[in-house]
Amino acid sequence: MPDPRFKVLTSASTSGPGDAGRTGSWRVERPVIDMSSCIPAKTGKHACHLCWLLCPDNVVSKEIEPAIDLEYCKGCGICAQECPVQAISMVPDADFLEGADSE
C-alpha cells in the first residue's frame, strides 16, 4: 500500500492516432490512385501492395482497391514513386480545396 500521505500520480500516454494532430494538413500534394491501372484493383487479386508496405505513415490499406486515409496522409509521395505501374499520381491539394472548405 502506498503511504496515504502521498498522492499516487501515474502518467502514461494512451495509444492512439493523431499524436501530432491531423497530419494531413502537412500535405501539399495528395496521392490519387487510378484504379484502372492499379494491379490489385484491375485484376481483383492481392498483388504488389507496395503502397501499403512502404507507406511510412500507415495510411494506405491492403485492400483490392487500396484506400488512403487523407486525414493523416503526410503526402510524401513514396507510394507514387514506388508504384510499379505508376497508378498513383500526386495532385496538388489546392485543387480539392473547394470541396474541403464547404462545411
Binding site: S15, G16, D19, R22, T23, V59, K74, G75
Partner: peptide, 10 residues
C-alpha cells in the same frame, strides 16, 4: 498509429 510526429517520407 498514423498521425505521429515523424517527418513526411521518414
Amino acid at each position: 498509429h498514423p498521425g505521429n510526429r515523424a517527418c513526411s517520407g521518414c
